[in-house]
């Protein structure tokens, strides 16, 4: 299977660890990735400014993938939601004609055939292979689903349950780790309120980190670069502000799966994680020695 990897804006600049680990895990699983340099912003922030511009910018990416005859694999949940929502809207002929008129000056047209999948969903669909290849990880892991990976449910008709999500926990179990429940699991990271009122977003993050700490997780795992900015990159700052220590390592899902598939910390970009994963790797190493 081959996908066009849609990096979006945040991943290639702010969370390269996510990109490295995704590329290497997909390679290990025999999934090929193509880079289409014409991809640009997914359009997500523009939905709040002008609906037609949003649809046009999102559909432009769908047209780029359609011309290359490749399905799209996203890494950012906001990109995933934005492209899927536009894809649904573009199934309507009137909308398609209106938006294609905006794409004509740049010599693009979208017929409506592109398939879009989140990298985590691709991993979920490859779970049997992952299970076969995995060396069990002796870890307690808290799954953070975020929002646009499962919602709005109308764009994910045949995947996930917005109220009782399951795919990440099943994947955590597939690599031999233990998914641990914690309070208010579906809480949003607050990333999109960051530019409006920082104190609100940071309080949302603090709440989640404190729930995860209380549950006794060794790490949290997530599937969106913006959630990572909130929980990993901002964790130290929140600790300082709140006078509360968390020290919760934050792993991207491919980093967790990659560890079980025997990839090296460098191949998973683990050195780039802000909250140190040293103790986590030590726990895993000790576990292996005991065997």
């Amino acid at each position: 299977m081959k996908y066009a990897l849609f990096l979006g804006c945040t991943v290639p600049v702010r969370t390269m660890a996510y990109e490295i680990s995704t590329r290497n895990v997909m390679k290990k699983l025999g999934i090929s990735l193509a880079d289409l340099e014409d991809f640009g912003c997914c359009g997500f922030p523009l939905e709040s400014i002008d609906h037609t511009t949003y649809l046009s910018v999102a559909a432009r990416n769908l047209a780029v993938a359609e011309a290359a005859n490749l399905p799209v694999m996203t890494m950012c949940s906001a990109c995933n939601g934005s492209l899927l929502k536009a894809n649904l809207a573009m199934q309507d002929k009137n909308t398609r004609d209106e938006i294609n008129a905006n794409l004509k000056p740049i010599n693009r047209q979208y017929k409506g055939t592109t398939v879009v999948k989140h990298a985590a969903r691709v991993l979920y669909e490859t779970m049997d292979t992952i299970k076969e290849m995995a060396h069990p990880l002796n870890l307690k892991v808290a799954a953070h689903y975020g929002c646009h990976y499962t919602k709005p449910s109308e764009i994910y008709a045949d995947f996930e349950d917005p109220e009782v999500p399951y795919s990440l926990e099943e994947l955590i179990s597939a690599v031999g780790a233990t998914p641990i429940p914690y309070e208010n699991k579906k809480q949003c990271c607050g990333g999109s309120v960051m530019g409006i009122d920082e104190s609100v977003s940071l309080e949302m993050v603090r709440e989640k980190l404190s729930h995860i700490k209380k549950a006794g997780a060794d790490a949290m795992v997530l599937v969106c670069p913006f959630c990572d900015v909130m929980y990993d990159i901002n964790q130290k700052r929140i600790e300082n502000q709140a006078g509360e220590q968390f020290g919760i390592p934050v792993l991207f899902l491919p980093q967790l799966i990659g560890l079980a598939l025997g990839l090296t910390p460098d191949e998973l970009g683990l050195k780039m994680n802000r909250v140190s994963v040293r103790n986590l790797l030590k726990t895993l190493g000790d576990g292996n020695e005991q065997k």
Binding site: I20, G40, D50, N102, I106
Partner: peptide, 28 residues
């Protein structure tokens, strides 16, 4: 990115600005 073995990313994409001029959002 190159040091990490990642492919280069295009620095600018002019097509979005063209869409902006079609929809008029550029003025805003």
């Amino acid at each position: 990115r190159e040091k990490l073995g990642l492919p280069k990313v295009r620095e600018k994409n002019e097509e979005i600005a063209e869409i902006y001029s079609c929809t008029g959002v550029g003025k805003v």
